[in-house]
Design a protein around this nucleic acid. Structure first.
Lengths: 264, 264
DNA sequence: TAGTGGTCTAGACCACAAT
DNA sequence: TTGTGGTCTAGACCACTAC
């Protein structure tokens, strides 16, 4: 019945770590395939003659490292580790469609975008990133990106309101240019975006993000701070949160001489 | 003595989650500052009249989300959430020094690099990324990057051995060009690198990485697959592992017309 | 020596899913 | 109905740190 090997009495590690190692080896060697049921708490208790806590802790180790998923009242299963999607990050003019929708369709998924815009006063950190005084009016837009109905990306963008006030693109996701992307929209009011900067960090999701993105426990998220700028000033910043298990971010450059900047 | 508020009997959440929420609020509100001691298991047991397990689970929740650090036999402390270092990613010729050493010195740290090179036969995945047949000889180099003696970055690089065999740069970290970076080294044998691609993913560290990088539990790592190419072919690939709590990756582009690629 | 977190036992009750 | 994981109690021994 049980494929898991015995423990090694000479192993100095705690028992729960040894049990976790046995299960891990079974997964990494392919004995247990993604989606397979992992021996549960009861099974581990009897198999290794340990208490509930020890078995539970062993599984917790694996769940926290993202190797397995616990489904309450159903069982524990090997997680699928594949990264299904890519996020090529290039920025071009005249795109005609926003990044996300293009990517999703390329992956055969039906994209959907929910957006909620309102004018707010810029907080300290937002103001600093937009290089405007704190308290200045900005248009803040919260996005939820859905693929086949599942939320897959969150973003909050800020645009200085003095730029877009009383223009057709006052609200990013309304009007004729909805869904075309920042560069196209800004172009339409004569604002030429020439630079993009992204700062990528990673962390475990907050409880709110766990819920909104439905990420399994133990899966980190990417957090991207993106800035679109003209030659003069930043004109849009966005904070983007992406599940780390479903995306890889790709960046490409061309190497140039000396102090000349990079290109692809 | 205790600043933590009482629990709400009407709260439907499990007790350990409620306790974790109280501690979390104390940290996020600034009552507990980074480095401060967090109420330990014994204190939580008496404060909320719960068992050891409940108190422990509450702290485990916070530790797994990276908010606190448990130090065995010493106590539990609020983790410093600041990202101390940046990793500007630009690639230029004639750099003279490898990326890492420059970055570290800029941050006032003493850099140190350990490297171990050997010739191996390329496995399937490595061969595919280098666009060579599997089994071809490659020079594989394992790096450990230290800052002030602490390991802070791991990398494994692969170079097709037919390129560098019997040249002064056969082993990347030996000879006169040690520490100068791939672009400079390849230049010296007439191989002109013109493109760089990075694919960034994130995950929780493997047990080995946890140990090698000494990352606290609950901290994800960046995993970067980097490819240096000439106009003809890939000439170096590297898998880089970086603690996610100490680095942010920055990428900058210049926006270009239509199908023209990106630049900074 | 007192206090900490690490590890572990041996129980218990629960709601829910699968059957 | 059975089995699952979720939650929780009430103990225990340990090694190590701080004092």
């Amino acid at each position: 019945m049980e494929r898991l090997p015995d423990l090694d009495p000479a192993d100095p590690r705690p028992i729960h770590q040894q049990i976790a190692a046995r299960v891990r080896e079974a997964i990494e060697s392919g004995v247990l395939q993604p989606g397979d049921r992992v021996p549960g708490e009861n099974l581990l208790m009897t198999r290794y003659a340990v208490s509930r806590w020890t078995a539970r802790e062993a599984l917790a180790l694996l769940a926290n490292s993202g190797l397995i998923t616990k489904v309450p009242k159903v069982g524990t299963f090997v997680r699928d580790q594949r990264r299904l999607q890519r996020k090529p990050r290039r920025y071009r003019r005249q795109r005609g469609t926003a990044e996300f929708a293009t990517e999703a369709r390329a992956a055969g998924l039906h994209p959907d975008i929910e957006a909620d815009s309102r004018v707010v006063e810029a907080a300290e950190d937002i103001a600093a990133r937009l290089e405007i005084p704190a308290g200045t009016e900005v248009m803040r837009t919260e996005y939820r990106f859905l693929a086949d109905g599942r939320p897959i990306q969150l973003a909050t963008s800020f645009e200085p309101f003095d730029l877009t006030r009383d223009t057709p693109i006052e609200r990013p996701e309304e009007g004729p240019l909805a869904g075309t992307g920042v560069i196209t929209r800004m172009d339409s009011i004569g604002v030429e975006i020439t630079r993009v900067a992204e700062e990528v960090s990673t962390r475990l999701p907050s409880p709110g993000e766990t819920e909104a993105l439905r990420v399994p426990s133990g899966v980190p998220v990417f957090c991207i701070h993106r800035t679109f700028s003209t030659d003069q000033r930043p004109v849009e910043i966005a904070d983007i949160v992406i599940p780390g298990d479903r995306y890889a971010l790709t960046y490409e450059f061309r190497v140039t001489e000396d102090d000349d900047p990079v290109t692809l």
